[in-house]
Every structure is written in structure tokens, then in C-alpha cells.
Design a protein around this nucleic acid. Sequence first.
DNA 1: TCCGATTTGTTCGTATGTATG
DNA 2: ACATACATACGAACAAATCGG
Lengths: 232, 232
Amino acid sequence: MAARDLQERIKKLIIDRRLPSGAPLPTEPELMEFLGASRNSVREALKALQAMGIVEIRHGFGTYVGPMSLAPMIEGLAFRTVAGHYRGEDSLLQLLELREAVETGLVSRLAGRLPEADLDELAALVARMEEQAAQGAGLAETDRAFHATLYRGLDNVLLSEVLEAFWDAFHRVRCDLVEVPQDPQVTCRQHREILDAVRSGDSARAERAIRSHFGHVRARLDVSTERSPSPQ
Amino acid sequence: MAARDLQERIKKLIIDRRLPSGAPLPTEPELMEFLGASRNSVREALKALQAMGIVEIRHGFGTYVGPMSLAPMIEGLAFRTVAGHYRGEDSLLQLLELREAVETGLVSRLAGRLPEADLDELAALVARMEEQAAQGAGLAETDRAFHATLYRGLDNVLLSEVLEAFWDAFHRVRCDLVEVPQDPQVTCRQHREILDAVRSGDSARAERAIRSHFGHVRARLDVSTERSPSPQ
DNA sequence: TCCGATTTGTTCGTATGTATG
DNA sequence: ACATACATACGAACAAATCGG
């Protein structure tokens, strides 16, 4: 009776007091008194809220309002994908298709509307990617930065975070599950083509570039997915 | 030190044993022995996993593998949006824009590719919507069904669930925060136009229809958002 | 309807680890 | 080194819910 209620009441407390991210929450004893519940119940409620990213607990220091990031969504998506994969579903492919669907829809609207500064930054990222490819280094982080920078121009923090969350979940699962046959040269060429297309302002070409990029990732996925790896 | 670890080990247990959704987990005493932790610690870990939708706990019955739905994401998104709204941010508008971005990207690809059966179902939904509008009844559920049916043809369960999650979060927050000036007639016309556009196979027209629909919702939002309501 | 077995829900007391000053 | 404040962890007990006889 209390457990579910406690979470709601703590959330309501944050709303009512207009607590911003990082603001300190009452200590556990204070919450015990305020909510009229025992330590353990309060702690379980806080644990649940922590899992949702609503509060942040720092050992030996205190409890604070969380950053409200989408990190817990990544966690949930990643687990759901891993579990589905080991059960023989094509969950990883579905996650990739989700990214493809969203990004193709966005990039066409982005074409020709990106400020010069963002385009320069993207160009620098591609250059760095080519450098890393030449050295045989991993270019995952640069790839992430490219996609993040690309959609920053939409001026919607939520949208950017959701896309980054999808990227993170996909990347984490892919690393855990399948060793992808790297092909850095092709990856670089495709990112440069995306950049050129967006710069040119040709929506259709930009959409084609994105679709081609994802098609390549999908192809690498298919050949790696033939055999189902076993955990540990 | 153990808390974070316990969650990971329970997740690993689900993965390793290939437990499908709905499968029973070991009881709390069994988990205590298996994980070498006290009951309270095990319970806190389970609570956190429950918040992420990974496990489902039924009082007096047992613990089970969760449905892996995106319900926790809705919860998190909704709270984040409400909290941001009361802090004076335009979080609700951002959520709407997120939906608009995704749906405009998808509907253009859908135009002309929807099977006849789905089109008929959509037509029935619009008819029902018009009926409800005439009676002055709420048409939220029908609206939800329309959007859900529309993107079912993409054949990607994850994608459908994400879109439904966005719809749910937006609807919940909108109901909690602002009383929207209903305009059922316009809503019906716009949904019919979306349907007609998709049926005609004209991608650009479909995208225009969706964008017009969202534009209308946004306009109603703007006038309601002038004054910031206070909670309870 | 009742009963007992099983399982989760809630509470208390106590001890330990950790960060701050 | 010490004290304070806080979170972490454990164990034991009882309450409440569920299921089957």
C-alpha cells in the first residue's frame, strides 16, 4: 500500500517545491518523518526513483534531485535488446531500424539549414574520423559526436537526448553481443557524404546518404548475427 | 558496493537462463542465498529493476520477469516534462516537437504502402472519431488508436512502442497541466486528411497533413501555456 | 468458508563504511 | 586524529496477500 505511494509522494514533493536538478532532497530520517514510513520503505522508494533517474544518491553525503537524463531509458532499452537477442529475436535490428527511421526523417529537414559553425564542426569530426581510421583506432566516440552534432541544430534538447540515447543503447548492445567487422574507410566516406549532402541543401540526397549509411551498418550486422553467441 | 552489483547479477541471471517475459524468478530467500546478500539488499535491487520494467513483483505470489515494455520510459518522460514545465521551461512543447519530428519522417515513407486492411481500420477509426465529436465525447483514445494503427504497418514492434510511449507521455502531461480548448471538428478533419493523403500515396501531401495536425495541437498549447498553473 | 503454506510487504534495531570539517 | 552526519548493510520479527486443500 505504501511503496507505490511513497514514490508518488516524493515525486510530488519535488514538483511542489520546484526543486531543480541537483537540489538536495531531505535526508532519509527527514523523509521517514515527512512520509510516515520506515527507513527501509523510504530507501526502496528512493532506489526505484534512482533507477528512473529522478533522484541521485551519493554515498555518505546525501540525496539529490537527479539530472533527469534519459540514462535509465538507455539501460532499459539495452537490456530489452540483449534479452531479446539471446532469445533469438531480431531486437538489435529493430533498434537499428528505429534509429534509421528517426534520423532519415530529421536529416531531410536539416539539409541546408545548418549554421556554418556546425558544418565546420562536423567537417572537423569527419577529418578526425579519417585520421583514426588510418591509425586503425576505434572511431565509435567520433561517430557518436558526429550524429549528436548533426541534430543539435534542431534546437530541441529532448530530441537530441533521445537520439543520443538510441545511439548509446545500440552501441552498447552491439559491443556486448557481436564483434562487428570494422570497415573504417567506408564509414568515413559515408559520413563525409552525409555532411556534403546536408551542406548542399539537397534534402533527398541527405536522406539517401543517411539511408545508405544505415544500410551498411545493417549489412555488417546481418553477417555477424548468423550464429547466436552464448553469454559467458 | 553491492547494490549496483546485485542489479547486474540479477539481470545476468535472466540473460543466462534465457528467461522470457513472465517467467518466474527465484524467491527472495533463494536470491538471498544465490547472491549472498541480505533480504533488504535483494529487495532494494528488485525494486530498482521493477522501476525499469525488468522484473514484476506480485505481492504474496512471486517475482517474475517483466514485460519489457516502455512503460518506465513513459513515466520518466512524463515526470521530466512536468517538472520542467513547472520550472518555466517549454518541455511540453519539446515533447510535442519530438513526436512531430518522428511522425513526419515516418508518414512520408508510409504513403501508398499501407495494406488495404489497415486503411479500412483507419477509416473506421476516423468515422468513430467523428461520431464521438458529434456527441461531445472525448476522442483521446480514438486518436491514440489512429496513430498506433498508422505506424503498425512499419512492421517494427519497437518503433510502434516508442511512438505509443511518446503519445502516452504527452497525453498524460497535457491532461495534468493544461486544460486544452477542445476543437473536435478540426481534429476529425485533420485525421481524415492524413488518412486520405496516405491512401493516395502522395508522400509530400501526407507529410503536410501530419505537420498541419501537429501545428494545430501546438497552437492550442501556446494559448493554454500563457499562464503557468500551480500544482494542487 | 476456513485453514495452512508460501511469498512478498513493512518495521525495528544495530552495526559498519564514507565523506565533511 | 576526531567528531558529526549520512548512507549502507544485515538480521529478525510480524503483517498482508495469494493459492491450494
